[in-house]
Write a protein that binds this DNA or RNA. Structure first.
Length: 877
RNA sequence: GCCCCUGUGGCGGAAUUGGUAGACGCGCCUGACUCAAAAUCAGGUGGUGGUAACAUCGUGCUGGUUCGAGUCCGGCCAGGGGCACCA
């Protein structure tokens, strides 16, 4: 009997040490068993772990431990996404070096992860800030460059004025920098880009193959890539009106059907034609300057008024050369989508309508909604973008929108002007190339040298890595690499003359775009990956992380894997076969009457009847319980790992984080929930202790027959086994938890039914031993330390971490008689117990003989009796 | 504005994918043990009526399909998320 309370604080480190010493979670690449790669998104070493990390890693660990038991060679590694801004901010604020700050944090967090008892292969640990890692990234940058997947170009970029760096589109959330929260400005800079658009169509198409990804993420990626099909059409310009005799203008449209509703042609202020004309027209130059000034902050763009400038240029309508349209420069036209030029159809596009109302251009409706009289159909303040029939459109009149699109496309494709078709079908993507240049120190240096004679020169592979200099200062804003006295001054690798290093570093999302591949062989020095290892382990079978990376990390990694495939570093294009996005851990907020937030561990909660109240633990002062929110430093509602591992223990915390809420949803951290988990830890300890006592009396040989009590115990154990196995495979951890509770309840009841020691027959003792073993193996993925302790108490010499998953006896789940609910007219009136394989006629007879059924029938004769085998009986009157 | 998701007891949530709504946990109530508390154990816990057996209503609202709807379809309402001058 386990008389002592289970002491997690003593037991947990003891088992961690044993696992560690025996190296049981280190995975060999030549393991012949089927592979299974489980990965949780690796953490940024920000300082300390909190319960949100516990949830994330506990889920991955359940999968890893269960798959290991099921006979897979499991790869479950851990590393550090170690480059990034916070290290530099710490350097500025605390006068520490980013490297020291980062590695100190890694040491702390590694220690904390070990406290959680995760079954990780620490021999494969990597940190992205280690030159042993980033040199390979530089190597791949050079390979991608050679393959045409990297490009240096001038473009408009998002500039974060607080972090003093450029941000990718994916890193701008509602017009603000994703880290700093500062309003992002537009700047024209020369930058390095990864050509993610080269794979736009494939990235989109392959989403259909990611059948183990959440729909939500797939939808978000589809929207982000944003494919639209349309027509590229050529407008002929009146050369007399253009600055340098230009005679054509290309326009992209998805609505060629509305071409007869055109009332102007619009070009972006950044369009080459606008630039050319501005050189000769000071008023237009002023207007363009005005557009750019007004357009610096994203937030302003969204509320900005539509403004335009009539260039005096005239364009011929593609379907009627005699119809001349005015060409405006308009502030709402984006240069980097389509061609930077549009035709404006105000009746059916709200932006165009707002624009023409201001400049007095005509509004001609050309699509009339079904059922509306074309004579009375007028456009007011709202453009009509729905379906309908064409009007005011000459040969298109009467067609549907789709027919008209087809007709216009056909005509213009076959019409030629100067030996080229007037129009061609085109696909455009919203997705833009990934700008990776960052004007920061703590990142992977871009291995490029600029030479006055040779131009842009890649660093030779033999010279890699390009290491970050150690002696840098953070006393001024801006890039420390750029103002370093010597680092950037190098000899040109080609001509030997004085040249200059690229001082930008790579976006930290590059670092995390391939780490999962590096884990497959982190020891190889000569290449980013060992092809045998990487092709063996990839794809990741189960990837787990936050949904906030749906269009960031998860899209970049898909691109990067394609680029690695194109340059021979991996043999596949989709890195993550299964993806699971877990919810956040949220917590109540607490504030003193003066509005100051109070941390959870300073608060004492009291339940009185249905009401709860919070008191300051130290003084008893009443505290207001605020809304439940995402854990954040500003709301002071975070719960750290140290607070819980040191008291209730890691197992209880893991158990609580996996219980109640479905894993994809947010979970609320509560003291009560944590206590409930702790109680269950003790209950399992007592229960297995009692069962161990009985198990000691069990015969070695399996009994020939089992009595009713033993059979009940065995049925409960095997039912739980079946459920937990399925629920782990489907990542429904909350249901695993419920089924383990059910088994514990059933076993507790079975023990309670034993009236005297004499009732413990050999077959019952044997069943108890079997059930106890099943119970411990079933909960060990969630509470591994407690499981080892119980496993030892059951007399095992080996570790439960190495125990095989129990074998299910399906016969135990099949009952010989079943109880079916009986409905009359769809309302439940009785139960009927019949043989499992009873004939329908027999069931019907049994049902109609029931007193409750007769009563409900009120003497009427049933019209029909519906019998769903093994399910239900419904008598219809 | 467009796209997507969610809505079930006091709370977190189950419901074999169209078949007994409320598994399991938390909280609460009653009892046992205790000088007392903690811990533990036993019982109860959707609403209404009834001592009870039982009856009746009940899955955001509303209509429909069906022998049967939390689950499917139509229309609303509420909450959350994503995208947003993308032509």
């Amino acid at each position: 009997m386990n008389n002592e309370r289970y002491n997690a604080r003593e037991a947990e480190p003891r088992w961690q040490k044993i696992w560690d010493e025996r190296g049981i979670f280190a995975t060999r690449n030549d393991d012949p068993r089927p592979k299974y790669y489980v990965l949780e998104m690796f953490p940024y070493p920000s300082g300390k772990l909190h319960v949100g990390h516990v949830r994330n890693y506990a889920m991955g660990d359940v999968v890893a431990r269960a798959r290991r038991a099921m006979g897979y060679a499991v790869l479950h590694p851990m590393g550090w996404d170690a480059f990034g801004m916070p290290a530099e901010n710490a350097a500025m604020e605390r006068k520490v070096h980013p490297r020291g700050w980062t590695y100190d944090n890694i040491a702390t967090m590694r220690q904390q992860l070990k406290l959680m008892g995760l079954s990780l292969d620490w021999s494969r640990e990597i940190a992205t800030c280690d030159p042993d890692y980033y040199q390979h990234q530089q190597r791949m940058f050079l390979d991608f460059l050679k393959a045409g997947l990297v490009e240096r170009k001038q473009s408009k970029v998002n500039w974060d004025p607080v972090d003093h760096t450029v941000l990718a589109n994916e890193q701008v959330i509602e017009g603000r920098g994703w880290r700093s929260g500062a309003l992002v400005e537009q700047r024209e800079l020369t930058q390095w880009f990864f050509k993610i658009t080269a794979f736009a169509q494939d990235l989109l198409d392959s989403i259909d193959t990611l059948d183990r990804w959440p729909d939500k993420v797939r939808v978000m990626q589809r929207n982000w890539i944003g494919r639209s099909e349309g027509l590229l059409l050529r407008f002929m310009l009146d050369a007399k009106t253009t600055p340098n005799g230009e005679s054509e203008l290309d326009v992209f449209t998805t609505r060629p059907d509305t071409l007869f509703g055109a009332s102007f042609v619009g070009i972006s202020p950044d369009h080459p034609l606008a630039t050319a004309l501005a050189a000769k027209n000071p008023a237009l130059a002023d207007f363009i300057v005005q557009c750019k000034r007004q357009g610096t902050a994203q937030e302003l763009i969204e509320t900005a008024e539509k403004l335009g400038f009539d260039t005096g240029i005239r364009a011929a309508h593609p379907l009627d050369p005699t119809w001349m349209l005015p060409v405006y420069v308009a502030n709402f036209i984006l240069m980097d989508y389509g061609t930077g030029a549009i035709f404006g159809c105000p009746a059916h596009d709200q932006r165009d309508l707002d624009f023409v109302r201001k400049y007095g251009l005509p509004v001609t409706p050309v699509v009339c909604p079904e059922g509306q009289d074309p004579k009375t159909f007028v456009i007011g303040d709202t453009a009509y973008d729905g379906d309908g029939r064409l009007i005011n459109s000459r040969f298109l009149d009467g067609m549907t929108v789709d027919e008209a699109k087809g007709e216009v496309t056909r005509r213009l494709e076959s019409a030629s002007q100067g030996n080229r078709p007037v129009a061609q079908r085109q696909v455009n993507f919203r997705l833009r190339d990934w700008g990776i240049s960052r004007q920061r120190y703590w990142g992977c240096p871009i291995p490029i040298i600029y030479c006055a004679d040779c131009g842009v020169v890649p660093v030779p592979v033999a010279d890699l890595p390009v290491r970050l200099p150690e002696d840098v200062s953070f006393d001024k804003p801006g890039n420390p690499l750029d103002r370093h006295p010597t680092w950037k001054h190098v000899a040109c690798p080609q001509c030997g003359k004085a040249a200059r290093r690229e001082t930008d570093t790579m976006d930290t999302f590059v670092d995390s775009s391939w780490y999962f591949a590096r884990f497959t062989d982190p020891w190889i020095k000569t290449a980013p990956t060992d092809r045998t290892a990487v092709d063996h382990w990839l794809p990741v079978d189960q990837y787990i992380g936050g949904v906030e990376h749906a269009v960031l990390h998860l899209l970049y990694s898909r691109f990067f894997t394609r680029a690695m495939q194109a340059t021979g570093h991996v043999g596949l294009k989709e890195p993550f076969a299964g993806l699971f996005t877990q919810g956040m851990v949220v917590h109540e907020t607490y504030r003193k009457p003066d509005g100051v937030y109070v941390e959870p561990f300073e608060v004492r909660l009291e339940n009185a009847g249905d009401t709860r109240r919070a008191l300051l633990a130290s003084t008893g002062e009443a505290i207001e319980i605020g809304p439940i929110e995402k854990m954040s430093k500003s709301k002071r509602n975070t719960v750290g790992l140290d607070e819980i591992a040191g008291t209730a223990g890691a197992d209880a915390a893991r158990w609580f984080m996996l219980s109640d809420s479905p894993p994809e949803r947010d979970v609320i951290w509560t003291e009560d929930g944590m206590q409930g988990a702790s109680r269950f830890v003790q209950r399992l300890w007592r229960l297995t202790g009692e069962m161990a006592e009985m198990a000691a009396k069990a015969p070695d040989r399996r009994p020939e027959t089992f009595g009713a009590p033993a059979t009940a115990v065995r049925k409960a154990a095997h039912a739980a086994l079946a459920h937990v196995t399925e629920d782990i495979e489907r990542l429904r951890f909350n249901r695993c938890v419920a089924h383990i509770y059910e088994l514990a309840n059933a076993l507790g009841a079975a023990i309670g039914d034993i009236v005297s020691p004499a009732a413990i027959t050999p077959d019952l003792a044997w069943a108890m031993r079997e059930a106890a073993n099943i119970l411990v193996v079933l909960f060990h993925p969630m509470m591994p330390h407690l499981a080892e302790e119980c496993w030892a108490a059951l007399g095992h010499q080996s570790l439960v971490a190495l125990a095989p998953w129990p074998t299910l006896e399906p016969d135990l789940l099949i009952e010989s008689t079943i109880t079916l609910p009986v409905q009359v007219n769809g309302k439940k009136r009785a139960d009927v117990t019949v043989a499992r394989d009873a004939a329908k006629g027999d069931i019907e007879a049994a049902v109609l003989a029931l007193e409750a059924v007769a009563k409900a029938l009120e003497g009427k004769t049933p019209k029909k009796v519906i019998i769903v085998p093994q399910r239900i009986v419904n008598v219809v009157v």
